[in-house]
C-alpha cells in the first residue's frame, strides 16, 4: 500500500477546502480510496461529512483543492458530467420519485436515453427490463416492482435509492447514512448488500452506527470540524484516544 502513487487510487482528494462565509466546513482534507475498497467516514454531527460528498459530486463548489477520480479532475465538471464519469451518490434522506413505481424509478435511472431526444425515443427493451429485474432482486424489491415508491417502508426506500445508483454501475458509490431509520433486520441485510456491491468498485459510506461500521468498513476516516482526526482500520481508530474523546466517548 505504502509504495502506491496517487494515480493508483480510484479517488484522491487533496487539500480540499470549502468555506461558507469564512466558516471552513471542510478544511485541507486529504482522502484516498482504492478500487474494491469500502471506506467509511464517521464523525459527530456537523463534522462536514455530507459536505465532503457534496464536494465530490459537484453539488457544492470547493474553495480550493483537488478531487481526482480515475485521474480526472472533478472540481471543474458539472453535476451530470460527474455522474457520467461514474460517480453515484445517495442522499441522506431517501431521495426517490414517490409518484413513480419502483420499476419506473429504476428505469428513469437507467443510464441510457439521458438526453432530451434520447429519452423521447428510449425503448424499454428486454435488456432494460432484465437489468431492472436483476437490480430489483439485488436490493430485495423484486416483488415490489409495481408498487408506487411512496408506499415503500423507509428502509425499502433507502434500498431503492441504492438500486437506482447500482443500475448505473458507478465506479464510485457514495452513500450518506444508508441505514438511518432501518430495523435491525434491515441493517443486517444492508450490510450484506454493501459488502456485495463493493466488489469491483469503490464505495464511500457515511455512517453513525458503530456496530454497522465495524461490519462493513475496510477503512475508516474520522472527521471532526472539517478535519481528519484519525484514519485507518476500525480497530485502530476505535482505540485512538482523540477519537474516544470527541466522538466515541459520549
Amino acid at each position: 500500500m505504502s509504495s502506491m502513487t496517487n494515480t493508483d487510487f480510484s479517488l484522491s482528494i487533496e487539500d480540499l477546502t470549502v468555506s461558507f462565509d469564512g466558516f471552513k466546513a471542510v478544511d485541507s482534507l486529504n482522502l484516498y480510496i482504492d478500487k474494491n475498497e469500502l471506506h467509511v467516514v464517521i464523525g459527530p454531527n456537523g463534522a462536514g461529512k455530507t459536505t465532503v460528498l457534496d464536494l465530490i459530486c459537484g453539488k457544492t463548489k470547493s474553495t480550493s483543492g483537488s478531487i481526482k477520480f480515475l485521474n480526472q479532475e472533478l472540481t471543474t465538471l458539472s453535476e451530470h458530467e460527474i455522474v457520467r464519469r461514474g460517480v453515484g451518490r445517495k442522499f441522506q434522506t431517501p431521495s426517490i420519485y414517490e409518484n413513480l413505481s419502483v420499476f419506473e424509478n429504476l428505469e428513469v435511472s437507467y443510464p441510457e436515453g439521458r438526453g432530451v431526444f434520447g429519452s423521447l425515443f428510449f425503448k424499454r427493451s428486454t435488456k432494460v427490463i432484465d437489468e431492472i429485474h436483476r437490480i430489483a432482486q439485488e436490493i430485495m424489491l423484486e416483488s415490489e416492482l409495481e408498487t408506487e415508491a411512496g408506499l415503500l417502508s423507509h428502509g425499502q426506500k433507502q434500498w431503492l435509492e441504492i438500486g437506482m445508483l447500482l443500475i448505473q454501475d458507478p465506479q464510485l458509490l457514495m452513500l450518506d447514512e444508508p441505514v438511518a431509520g432501518m430495523s435491525v433486520k434491515e441493517r443486517e441485510q444492508t450490510a450484506v448488500l454493501l459488502n456485495k456491491i463493493s466488489k469491483g468498485r469503490s464505495v464511500l459510506v457515511i455512517e453513525h452506527d458503530m456496530e454497522f461500521v465495524a461490519r462493513i468498513a475496510h477503512k475508516v476516516t474520522v472527521l471532526h470540524q472539517g478535519k481528519i482526526l484519525a484514519a485507518g482500520k476500525m480497530e485502530d481508530v476505535q482505540k485512538d484516544p482523540k477519537v474516544i474523546e470527541v466522538y466515541l466517548g459520549h
Partner: peptide, 28 residues
C-alpha cells in the same frame, strides 16, 4: 408516455435526484 414523460414527473418530484442521476435537467 416516453422516458421523457417519466423524467418530467421525476424532475417535478426530486429535481436533485434527477440531476445526480446524470441528466442535464435544464435541457428537459
Amino acid at each position: 408516455t416516453s422516458k421523457f414523460g417519466r423524467l418530467l414527473l421525476a424532475i417535478r418530484d426530486k429535481e436533485d435526484r434527477v440531476r445526480f442521476s446524470g441528466y442535464d435537467v435544464a435541457n428537459f
